[in-house]
Each structure stands twice: as structure tokens, then as C-alpha cells.
Design a protein around this nucleic acid. Sequence first.
DNA 1: ACTTTGACTATAA
DNA 2: GTTATAGCCAAAG
Length: 116
Amino acid sequence: MNESTDFFLRVYAVVRKVPRGRITTYGAIARYLGGSARTVGWAMNASHFQAKAVPAHRVVNRNGLLTGKHHFATPTLMQELLQAEGVTVQNDRILNFKRLFWDPAEHLPPEQRHSG
DNA sequence: ACTTTGACTATAA
DNA sequence: GTTATAGCCAAAG
């Protein structure tokens, strides 16, 4: 495993730590892991190939917009998954986004180890 | 090797 | 709120 590849795994590890019914952003993950939001988004694109499922529906952009909905099996699956967890979505946007926002840098220890 | 694209974000007008 | 620009990093052509 290269360090670059490990970054993807760290992204998945963080996303899986997002509590049910909460959401986070690409930028928050990027800041926590020390990468860029683009790279996090790219990692999410490859999350489908992971053996373990990644709750990618809990990751939205900084505006609470479901920008990644088109990458799911169906363009409405992301919204359905969120609503199934108690998150209200309207017009492809999460309501109370700021209240439901879950910052890994605030709830996770610094430099979260993948071995744990 | 260079250009374009992309599940992003911050700032400015 | 919208549009444009700059920064960012990885993958594909």
C-alpha cells in the first residue's frame, strides 16, 4: 500500500465513523486528513469498489447539497438513504444542515489510525 | 509530458 | 443568490 492509496482508506474510515442521521462534508474530511476536498471526492468515487460499504450518502458538499447523488445506483438513492436515517432532504439539499453537520476534527482524535 | 475533467472550497463582484 | 476566478490533487485521454 502506498501512502497515496492509504489516504483513500483513511477517507473511507472517517466516513464510516459518521453517526447515523448525521452528515459531514468533503472539506471537513480533507482538513482532518490533511488533504484537499477534491481528493476526498475522488476517493468517494472509488468507494464503490471497497469490500466494506461506505456510507457515502452522509457526505455532502459544504452547502449541504447532494452533489454526489448521480454516482449512486439511482439518482434518488442518496436522498432516500438520508431520509431513511431521519435526515430531511428538500430540493437536493439537507435541511438543518449546519445542525446535522458532523465534524471529524471535533469528534475524532487527531490523525486517526487506520489500524484501530 | 500536457490537457481536460471532477462526488470541492474560498473569495470577490 | 448567481457568476467568475483561483487553489487544490488525482485519474483519464
